[in-house]
């Protein structure tokens, strides 16, 4: 085994890239859940975003348009969930699961013509002399625009939820939809908006996989990233900065196990591959053990069907 081949700066830089798809999806789902909606369809929206983004980028030659297409496509898919759960009052858990299966199938269908195609490359942001700083240049300033966008999004969501009136109303809806309705807030409209935002974020996360991280289209390429994103929202107890921490922790374990595999660690590859998922489960177990709902900070109306009685 040769650990000297693992360089910390490459590791950290790779970790940020590996974490970005999950981070994007998780921060979107956080907003959805703060509004009191449990959308388990993140995986389906991610993979649909991955193929939408891939297809648009290939057809137009512009990765930026690809990302826009991914956000729009996945948001449109999330509206299917929105209409079913908010207007037809279907069960959120079942509908979310169905959305994942539907997204996986639909993306495979749309992606038939794109297998083996290489997408246009996204230019790295050239930050000039900043990129030449030893260590930090590579770690902090050597990424593509989406990495920075994802970080900005975490900050923006935190600002929105904790500092703005609109964010307060969104949290209020997630806390008690009946009380919010009695005060005259439009529960369904606010929730639809949150669901669409969550869909768009998941789509961006998916497109980051297919356009930058891999970059290629293969069926089922999200490989459970959407589920990890859902777990990270719980891990973060619905706090934006902790979503960042959770996503980077997961990304770190992923990258580290790849490096350990390359270094020839004498552990079967299967154990290393499963390690990020095992860590996620362990963290969830520790987080959830012996604590009440409030300690976990979960929105009180999470997953409950809202039906205005008046």
């Amino acid at each position: 085994m040769n650990l000297s081949g693992i360089s910390p700066e490459v590791l950290i830089a790779a970790l940020m890239v590996a974490s970005t798809p999950i981070l994007l999806a998780a921060i979107g789902e956080l907003v959805v859940e703060k509004a009191g909606v449990l959308n388990l369809g993140v995986e389906g929206m991610m993979i649909f975003g991955a193929i939408c983004g891939f297809a648009v980028a290939v057809e137009t030659g512009s990765p930026a348009l690809g990302f826009l297409g991914a956000a729009a496509g996945a948001a449109a898919l999330s509206m299917l969930f929105g209409v079913l759960t908010q207007f037809l009052l279907s069960n959120q858990v079942a509908t979310g699961l169905a959305l994942t299966l539907f997204g996986l199938g639909l993306s495979a269908l749309v992606g038939q013509g794109y297998v083996g195609v290489t997408p246009p490359a996204m230019a790295k942001l050239d930050l000039g002399p900043l990129g030449d700083i030893p260590f930090f240049g590579r770690v902090l300033f050597g990424h593509d625009a989406m990495v920075y966008l994802s970080l900005a999004l975490v900050a923006a969501v935190w600002m929105f939820l904790n500092r703005s009136r609109a964010g307060l109303i969104l949290r209020a809806v997630g806390e008690s939809h009946d009380a919010a309705h009695a005060l005259g807030y439009r529960v369904v409209a606010i929730r639809l908006g949150a669901i669409a935002f969550g869909g768009a974020c998941a789509g961006l996360g998916g497109a980051y996989l297919s356009l930058i991280r891999v970059p290629q289209w293969t069926e089922g390429m999200t490989a459970g990233a959407g589920w990890i994103a859902l777990a990270i929202v719980v891990f973060a107890s619905w706090r934006p900065w902790r979503v960042l921490l959770g996503a980077y922790l997961f990304g770190g374990v992923t990258v580290l196990q790849l490096n350990l595999q390359a270094a020839g660690l004498a552990v079967p590859v299967e154990y290393l591959s499963m390690s990020p998922y095992v860590v996620t489960i362990l963290v969830l177990v520790v987080m959830s053990s012996g604590r009440g709902r409030a300690a976990l900070n979960a929105p009180a109306s999470l997953g409950r069907v809202f039906h205005a009685t008046t």
Partner: peptide, 13 residues
């Protein structure tokens, strides 16, 4: 009222 929010936030809503 919203149990998880503060008094001031509840009033603001």
């Amino acid at each position: 009222l919203f149990e998880a929010l503060s008094v001031a936030e509840n009033v603001a809503l």
